[in-house]
Amino acid sequence: MDATVIPPRTDIRGDLRRIADMVSAQARVLDVGCGDGALLDLLTREKGVDGRGMELGMDGVRECVSRGLSVIQGDADTDLKDYPSDAFDYVILSQTLQATRDPRGVLLQMLRIGRRVIVSFPNFGYWRVRLALLLTGRMPVTDRLGFQWWETPNIHFCTIADFTALCAQLGGVTVERSAILDHAGRQLTSDATTWRANWSGEQGIFLLRRD
């Protein structure tokens, strides 16, 4: 078998970098849907966090644990209830909200487990998505959302406006920070409440705080 040590990552996705900027050093962090562990790795190395991860896919879990990260196989929809309240400073859900069966329930669980919650998701209100549906009459397939409708794991799309409305409806939740990113991962604005943010942002990142 191959006994070599897995090389450290060099390419960090722009949105992960921005999420990492929202996390304070030495914090306790749970990354829900942590994938191959890129964000946990970044947070551990650069912020010295006490990081844990949960990932649905076993390939990702094995990759993470092989890299020395504390990750378990688990499902955001069913397994967050096992965690005690206030166990973490930050609970992160990166590009996973739209793949959950009960996004609102998952958000509430995250807000119970951690005082602060960071959520990033693709914006279905992005102009390219809107135009694709309007002009072709077909479900949009973009670089970031590269699935056909019948195979996509993304079952609960929302727009930035939808998400801010849900946060308001939940009550007791403050949007502390937000970042609206363009196609290249550059920040367009930190104000998620404008019509322009919902039109030109390809993805949104929100830092929520339980009041």
Partner: peptide
């Protein structure tokens, strides 16, 4: 066991090997 460890926010990794 993993669920029990999560319930006390322990540091735990878990993999199932195919």
């Amino acid at each position: 066991v993993v669920h029990a460890l999560n319930a006390v926010a322990a540091n735990v990794s878990f993999v199932e090997i195919e």
